[in-house]
Write a protein that binds this DNA or RNA. Structure first.
Lengths: 236, 236
DNA sequence: CGGTACGTTGAGTCATATCAACCATAGTGG
DNA sequence: CCACTATGGTTGATATGACTCAACGTACCG
């Protein structure tokens, strides 16, 4: 058994807690997963994998937050998504059998399990329910990507910033004082919205003047969700 | 037999010709597909399906060109992709079991086969190789979407227009006189690039002055691919 | 013949990027 | 302990890419 360390999460437990994509695995498969996986810990700033590399497996996030981003031709990051507990990353490259089209960097210290590609592929071949689950995941993400494309192409920076704040509220939630449960640098915010750092700063302080948010360093306190919704034009 | 009309394409033949995603189906499955499919013809401007609707199957394109787009909150279209011979559309909604996140409209008269969702799902359950093929397709498209997001977020309209022209060359090819094998209105071009129609017109005529293209109505003759590549900053 | 859709051009405006200076903070090394 | 440096945040001034609005031309169609 590889499972001496009490800190290493059990796949069975893990996949029950978060309604994960592993929920359709058989007990045997879950056991195999648990045996083959490689538990790893990373600190803020660490890089899990980098764009352009061939990837030998994917990562299942147990705790912490990771940003997944592409690097534009002038070196500017475009954040594609965040991954947190229960999410998997790098599966796209593994499944399409392509080089990584993104890089992944730790935003909040995290614990992840690395799972070799072969396992994933073998489960797909033996467990149709699981295959379907993966397909659903990819197709769902594809739908989100399409929305994002439309937003970036058509909305103003102001609208997008408001929208992104709401997305973050939705994904990471607010604490008991309405502070966003994720803290990002202004530059990172800019790299989600697709704008310049200075623009984010200016717009955030506008939002602050308008009593939509409060700002304490990197912490964002959300005061008026309705108004943000209105600004962001979410009709979808 | 449903296969009286000589014009209706046989799935077996069709899937051999274009290296389609059906290539991993067994002869039995192909036969079933052929039996269950519904052959349809559409003319320019026809709508195959619309955003927000529940979809009962997907479409396999036999001939013609279809644009797949999202409608922004102010009614402006954002073209997500084009589908031509061998491509399938609407599979995303079917597989993720979500409402359609896009609409599909005919650009060039087309012949398509409509295939009920159940068939697709049943093949996934019985044919792992086919499931894997579908996953690959979705994941590949996801990678393209990620690139597109980064482009729209970071590149100028000029760069994107040049890039889109090259994409179209790549997808649809040039005829013997170097004319692009797809003709789009200026508005449609704008709706791919994510800009205003007038901007496309101005930039196109700039490209024309710079001897990169020639314009004859909607037909675009590509004169200098290298220069377009340089403008578009394709390092990926 | 008028109507509708598309294409083109010009002029003015505005949102956003860019450039530059400056401050705050924290970590580092002598 | 302090100077040093790096990183991130903020603000102002300025430039400009791109959008909008408006007018007009063109072509096709019933």
């Amino acid at each position: 058994m590889k499972q001496q360390d009490i800190n290493i999460p059990l796949c069975a437990k893990c996949s029950l807690e978060s309604g994960s994509i592993f929920k359709h695995l058989t007990p045997d498969e879950t056991e195999k997963l648990n045996y083959e996986k490689d538990f790893r810990q990373y600190k803020r700033g660490d890089i899990l994998y980098q764009e352009g590399n061939r990837i030998s497996g994917f990562y299942c996030i147990n705790s912490g937050i990771i940003k997944v981003f592409k690097t534009g031709f002038d070196g500017k990051e475009q954040i594609i998504r965040f991954a947190k507990q229960g999410d998997i990353i790098a599966y796209r490259s593994v499944l399409s059998n392509e080089l990584a089209c993104t890089s992944a960097k730790v935003i909040e210290d995290c614990q992840v399990c690395f799972i070799p590609s072969e396992i994933l592929i073998s489960f797909i071949k033996t467990n149709p329910a699981y295959a379907l689950e993966l397909i659903k995941l990819a197709c769902h993400e594809l739908g989100e990507a399409n929305s994002f494309i439309t937003d970036i192409a058509q909305k103003t920076v102001r609208e997008r910033l408001a929208e992104i704040i709401l997305f973050l509220v939705n994904d990471f939630g607010l604490d008991d004082q309405n502070y966003l449960n994720i803290s990002l640098t202004r530059e990172e915010l800019a790299n989600i919205v697709g704008t310049a750092t200075e623009s984010v700063i200016r717009l955030l302080s506008e939002f602050k003047s308008d009593k939509l948010v409060e700002l304490t360093g990197r912490k964002i306190k959300v005061l008026n969700t309705k108004a943000l919704e209105k600004i962001s034009n979410i009709y979808n």
